[in-house]
Design a protein around this nucleic acid. Structure first.
Lengths: 153, 153
DNA sequence: CAAGATTGAGTCGTCAATCTTT
DNA sequence: AAAGATTGACGACTCAATCTTG
């Protein structure tokens, strides 16, 4: 079903993903003591209007299942980086906000993350590759989306 | 540190990875009841000369940490898909082999995995993209490798 | 009933510590 | 001491079940 060259490309791609994740994670831990999953939520919050988001908004924004978000917010709350507050306009919901410590952490983390991304990834991209990566990603997502794959409701 | 276009490309790429993994995982579970991590080890074994590999060989072959391999082999042993055998020539090591059930499973799994890869990924690649993906991956791995990132000893 | 959110169980992945053999 | 491998603890992710409110 696959040619040898395709399989080689896949193995190379898989290995790259794994190493890149490890490198990003390692930079983030070293510079600001947060994991990549923690960072994704903290960053979404720091980027949000009013600095607050509901669980479902976070889930949609970073493309996670909502139970994953819920678990991760629980861990972040334990670490005193975010807080949950009841939502007045919809009693089913919660607002999640950064604590002062969380705001401070996310600033450092953004620097570390983008620096690592620059050095390990974007600096080695050649002319036009950033664009074609974006296109390719869109095509793959479309191919999956039109097929029968379970998405979080 | 990053341009808007770079950040967009990154987000798009991240989302694609997540969805592709979910789709591959889902096909694999549906057709042969194995997870992606399980599959990686089963496949390495089925592809090995003599059908057996040592923990360190598996780790090197699929680019995992050896403790991860050890844990996963333990789980696979519980599921009766592989077995461990003492290594005669080096008393520190173990040979891991497929059971008959494991051999049968991996055949189905290979079909499911490659089929999904073909439909969701390679079918949407345009001329030359497979090649440039391979190149890009190599460059990224090199960029990380030359920097101070912890690799499994 | 739909939607928002949580929870618990089970698998998975990493790290540091450990043990044995080379 | 270095290499091969295991273990336990903890964080992370998914799935199904559940609970509450709209």
């Amino acid at each position: 079903v696959l040619t040898g060259a395709e399989w080689d490309a896949w193995r190379s791609f898989s290995s790259m993903r794994r190493r890149l994740d490890r490198a990003l994670e390692s930079e983030l831990q070293h510079d600001s003591a947060v994991s990549l999953p923690e960072f994704e939520i903290l960053f979404a919050l720091s980027d949000a209007p009013g600095g607050q988001l509901r669980i479902k908004d976070i889930a949609q924004h970073i493309d996670w299942e909502k139970s994953r978000v819920s678990h991760q917010v629980t861990r972040l709350e334990k670490r005193r980086l975010v807080t949950r507050r009841l939502c007045e306009t919809d009693a089913r919901g919660w607002w999640v906000t950064l604590t002062p410590a969380g705001s401070h952490t996310v600033l450092e983390a953004v620097r570390a993350h983008r620096g690592a991304l620059r050095r390990y990834f974007f600096d080695v991209l050649e002319e036009g590759e950033e664009r074609s990566l974006n296109d390719l990603s869109t095509r793959v997502v479309d191919a999956i989306g039109t097929s029968a794959v379970r998405q979080d409701a």
